[in-house]
């Protein structure tokens, strides 16, 4: 799991660089963002409408 987290962090760093240079994100980038958000929720608990 640690390996996966490190890979995600690396990808997110690359994305931030892409964003700052105004480049569009790829489908794979969106998949990583979705994954990071799902992992974040799995630690904090799933969202409700509140």
């Amino acid at each position: 799991m640690e390996e996966l987290k490190i890979e995600i962090m690396q990808k997110l760093k690359e994305m931030r660089e892409k964003e700052s240079s105004g480049q569009q994100l790829s489908v794979n980038d969106s998949q990583v963002l979705l994954l990071a958000a799902l992992l974040e929720e799995s630690y904090n608990g799933e969202s409700t409408t509140k």
């Binding site: 799991m1 996966l4 799995s42």
Partner: peptide, 18 residues
């Protein structure tokens, strides 16, 4: 999340999302 995730491979995980 548990169906999608492969803890040792980001490529496998994103393939599952795909």
């Amino acid at each position: 999340l548990s169906d999608i995730i492969n803890p040792s491979s980001l490529t496998d995980t994103t393939t599952n999302i795909s």
